[in-house]
Amino acid sequence: MIVFEDVIKVYDPDVVGLQDFTCHIGKGEFVFLVGPSGSGKSTLIKLVLKELVPNSGRILVAGRNLGTLRKSRVPLLRRNIGCVFQDFKLLPNKTVHDNVAYALEVVGEPRRSIRRKVPEILSLVGLAEKTDSYPHEISGGEQQRVSVARAFVNHPPLLLADEPTGNIDPETAVGIMQLLVRINRTGTTVVIATHDRDMVNRMRRRVLQLEAGRLVRDERRGSYDQVTEEVGDAL
């Protein structure tokens, strides 16, 4: 689903985003990106969305080479990627319903099917009663669920989440994570950048750890912190 080959991204004055980054994320995987702030997690997500362009290296998303993807096709790429952010990024002037519907309007979905799909996905994320509320009228956890609903309403093959639980309390966070797992079960590839140690340790999924723009660990069923062989043996 996502292939990075020797990708280098350097910001203007010499701030390293990603350094010689190579990795492969398969279809239907559930992957955590971990690492301290500034280690390159967000850079990686922005590269996949083609919000940023790498200095060198090759990025493939769903078999498409982003380097040769024309500018006018970028919106089409993004329609196939659902996005969830730490700050939710909801349109403040639209109701919960219209925020989700917007993602469908964008792809030119017929009105009739919008009327069917939006309530469907809202009840899936448990927000059927909040349809006509505005983002500022609901809690952070609820806003994040709206954001997940918007990301998934098109049933994209890939879902990216940048610190999805960063702004919400741990209990609500569990709900969000369960939602993402359910989405993953439908076959959607899910990539989550996170600081949430407990969450990663509990889930035991594939972990990619970044450090100063380099991939320092790629572990199946990993935990948040690196457990070195020696320490592991000692335990």
Binding site: P75, R78, C83, L91, P92, N93, A103
Partner: peptide, 16 residues
Amino acid sequence: RREVEIMRLVGATNWF
């Protein structure tokens, strides 16, 4: 501008 940024993220074309 935030609104515009969000629109672009969900895959709205420039003319949209």
